[in-house]
Simulated assay, not measured.
Amino acid sequence: MNSDQNIDFRLNPDLDLPALARQFRAAGRIQIRDALDIGTAEFLRSVLQNRTNWGLAWQIGAEGPRAIRYAETQALSDAEKLALCQKAGEAVGKGEYGFVYEQYAMLTAYLEQWDPTHPLNRLLEHLNDQPFLGLVRQISGVQSVIKAEAQATCFAPGHFLTEHDDLHSRDPRRVAYVLNLTIPDWKSEWGGYLNFFDEHGNIEAGFRPMFNSLNMFLVPQRHSVSHVVPFAPVGRYAITGWAMDP
């Protein structure tokens, strides 16, 4: 694979799509292990860990979401970043919605040409083409999806995303996805799980951020990303987004 924007994007050819479709339709969600060709997965992991200039996204209760780019993030001290996490955590402790994580806004970066040779530009094109959209349609049964939105995320130690359902007033989101690209031996003790909740607030299912796994679930579903603990040695890297109707 090249270090430029030319990605040889390949799904794992051994995926049993009919069996995966049956599993998805029974639960409305799935974790697909070894989703990509291993060369594709390793290349994308390297891009996220070594080639991506991370911004920062957060929401502190009713203040609404905020996002800043790499240069602004670099201007923040470690103490200021920690204070953001603590303030968001305090809001969550009062029952408010909140999140903090590192972000590279792939669609905005593509449209505004932040870095024309960045590999994530080409990845966004692949996510909006066959075979990825075909895989989403076949496994989910949602034939109406025609496009995918994407962002690169890194949940570093101290980061989290509280319970929500992914419904959006503008975007026709139908199927959410998380392509996990963090280190292969991610430990359960480090957190960063994609958790789903029943009507009583119990965790109904939890997906470990397993390297080269693709999580998919129907929208809406109540879910969160659990707190990545302070002693985690690395961040939880992923490409996340939604397959959407016209």
Rank of each mutant, 00 (worst) to 15 (best):
1 M>K: 10
5 Q>C: 11
8 D>P: 03
8 D>Q: 14
8 D>N: 14
8 D>G: 13
9 F>I: 10
11 L>K: 04
11 L>A: 08
12 N>L: 09
16 D>N: 14
17 L>W: 15
18 P>I: 10
19 A>W: 04
21 A>L: 05
24 F>G: 01
29 R>F: 04
31 Q>L: 05
32 I>K: 04
36 L>W: 02
36 L>R: 04
39 G>R: 10
41 A>G: 03
42 E>N: 05
46 S>Q: 15
51 R>E: 10
54 W>R: 04
54 W>G: 09
60 I>M: 07
62 A>S: 03
66 R>Q: 04
72 E>Y: 07
73 T>W: 11
73 T>M: 11
77 S>W: 13
80 E>L: 15
83 A>I: 14
90 E>C: 11
92 V>W: 03
96 E>H: 01
96 E>R: 02
97 Y>M: 03
97 Y>A: 05
98 G>L: 03
100 V>G: 06
103 Q>S: 08
104 Y>H: 04
110 Y>H: 10
119 P>G: 14
120 L>A: 04
121 N>Q: 07
123 L>F: 07
126 H>P: 10
135 L>M: 15
138 Q>T: 15
140 S>N: 13
141 G>W: 07
142 V>E: 11
143 Q>A: 15
148 A>G: 12
149 E>C: 09
152 A>L: 00
156 A>W: 10
157 P>Y: 13
157 P>K: 12
162 T>G: 00
164 H>A: 00
168 H>N: 09
170 R>L: 13
171 D>R: 13
174 R>K: 13
174 R>A: 13
175 V>A: 12
178 V>D: 02
179 L>E: 00
182 T>R: 02
182 T>H: 00
184 P>V: 06
190 W>N: 06
191 G>L: 02
193 Y>E: 12
193 Y>M: 05
200 H>C: 07
203 I>S: 08
204 E>T: 08
208 R>K: 07
210 M>C: 12
217 F>E: 00
217 F>W: 06
218 L>M: 15
222 R>G: 00
230 P>N: 12
233 P>L: 14
234 V>E: 15
235 G>Q: 07
235 G>I: 03
236 R>I: 00
237 Y>R: 00
244 M>W: 10
245 D>T: 15
